[in-house]
Design a protein around this nucleic acid. Sequence first.
DNA 1: GCCAACGTTGGC
DNA 2: GCCAACGTTGGC
Length: 142
Amino acid sequence: MQYWLFKSEPSSWSWQQQLERGEQGEEWDGVRNYQARNHMRAMAIGDRGFFYHSQKDKAIVGLVEVIATAHPDSTTEDERWECVDIRALASLPTPVTLEVCKLDPRLAGMVLVSNPRLSVQPVTAEEYTVICELGGLTSQST
DNA sequence: GCCAACGTTGGC
DNA sequence: GCCAACGTTGGC
C-alpha cells in the first residue's frame, strides 16, 4: 500500500463535491504535468491519499481511496494524460494546515512543503500516520 | 494582487 | 540539446 496527496483548488473541485460523489468516486482529471501523471500511473487500487485544498484553506481536509488505476483522461484527446479515480473515505475532524506541516519536524520533509506546486504527490508511511493523528482520524477510519 | 518558483515551449 | 522566454501555480 502506498500513500498519496491530491491537491485541488476548492473553486474547481472541492472536498464537498468529492464527498457528494460518494462510493462511485470521481476521475482525478485535468492533470497536465508529467510528474503528477507518473505518480498516478504508480497507484494501485486500495492506495490511500489525502485531499488538500490549496489557496484559501491550505489544509489537508480529507482521506480518499484509489478505486481505479490510471486510464485515459476523459477531458482531453491527448493520449499523454491519464488519471485515476478516487472516492472519499472520511473527513478529517481537524484539518491539517500547511502551516502545521511546516512546523512539525516529522512533516517538514513533505513534498507539500518542498514543492507545493506539484498536484499529485507521494506521502511516506510515517507522514501518513502523523497526519491521521493530527487530523483526529481514529485507527478504524483509516 | 503580487511575485517567486517551476514547468513547458520553441528558436537556434 | 541548450536555454531564453513565457505561462501557470499557489503562498503570501
